[in-house]
């Protein structure tokens, strides 16, 4: 079980284990980690839902943010399920950074074998990657569907960190307020989907191709995070977005600090929605704010 997009589902599947990208609900009453001032609600909800999961063989977290890294520290103290911390480098422009990521995937592989998985052959990994390339990303486990962008409402992009299941109500509210989401650039949306695999490279060295493709996922945590802006520069006009909603959880410093910069950069009307993870997206206050925002885009 994992939630971070830098964990390749195909790598887990190639070990004969079932990958499950957990998008927390969160489960009511689950409190392996209590609500603590300063703790990201998403990180907490993930840890609690993962800990409460039955038939979970192992949990994979990553170092993409400090909050998750520290949640891992507490999780290994509190639960019996084996957990693994995948080191995802923040830098990406050196030769050493993707190599470190590749080494980490190999280490993850050894962890999966210890969990009862089998060491995958090159062919098996390649086959699983090919299958993934053939299937529509909308079918991928855990990832939210790509918005169809159809209809006549004001076109809006939603950008930000991951969305918990219940915060997906945001999409319906935008629709009900006369808008339509044309780009889901959240961590649980299109932005975090890996690019299609290259068939030739995949045949030569599937693990290397897997690592290269996943390592290129644009994210706010990258230093520098210019690739995220490059991705947005291509996707916002392609989707025809006329406004941007930035959603982030309170105490998520990485997205929080990005709002003003994104605003200066995008030259589009922006609305910031920060959530404590208590289901506030469905509140009248948020609904009114979205309504007012969509009005300005008409």
């Amino acid at each position: 079980m994992y939630t971070c997009p830098y964990v390749p589902a195909q790598w887990i599947a190639a070990h004969g284990l079932q990958p499950h990208r957990l998008i927390p609900a969160p489960i009511e009453g689950a409190s392996t980690i209590p609500r603590i001032e300063g703790l990201c609600p998403y990180a907490r909800a993930f840890a609690n839902d993962a800990a409460a999961g039955v038939e979970v063989t192992g949990i994979v977290l990553t170092t993409a943010c400090d909050q998750m890294r520290r949640v891992f520290d507490l999780l290994v103290h509190r639960i019996e399920t084996p957990a693994f911390l995948l080191n995802v480098p923040s830098t990406w422009q050196t030769v050493a950074a993707p190599r470190l990521y590749l080494d980490e995937l190999k280490r993850l592989g050894r962890f999966l074998v210890r969990l009862g998985g089998r060491e995958p052959s090159k062919e098996e990994l390649a086959r699983i990657m090919l299958d993934a390339t053939a299937s529509h990303p909308r079918d991928e486990d855990g990832v939210h569907g790509i918005p169809c962008g159809c209809g006549s409402g004001a076109p809006v992009a939603v950008v930000g960190g991951p969305l918990m299941q219940r915060d997906r109500v945001l999409f319906d509210i935008v629709h009900e307020c006369g808008g339509r989401i044309v780009l889901d650039a959240t961590e649980t949306g299109q932005r975090s989907l890996p690019a299609p695999f290259d068939r030739r490279r995949l045949t030569d060295d599937p693990l290397l191709e897997l690592a290269q493709v996943y390592f290129q996922i644009p994210d706010v945590s990258r230093r520098p995070n210019g690739e995220l802006y490059r991705w947005l520069a291509a996707e916002l006009p392609r989707a025809g977005a006329r406004g941007v909603i930035l959603h982030h959880y309170v105490w998520c410093d990485k997205w929080h600090a990005e709002f003003e910069r994104l605003k200066e950069w995008a030259h589009l009307p922006m609305l910031r929605l920060d959530s404590e993870g208590r289901g506030e997206m469905d509140s009248p206050r948020v609904r009114n704010r979205i309504h007012a925002f969509v009005e300005t885009l008409r």
Partner: peptide, 26 residues
């Protein structure tokens, strides 16, 4: 960067966005 706090990582990125070039090391 890397195994550092999110506070500083985010603030340094903001600084870079304001036009201060940074040599990031991991």
């Amino acid at each position: 960067v890397g195994a550092t706090c999110d506070d500083f990582s985010a603030i340094a990125q903001r600084l870079s966005g304001l036009g201060h070039p940074i040599l990031w090391w991991e």
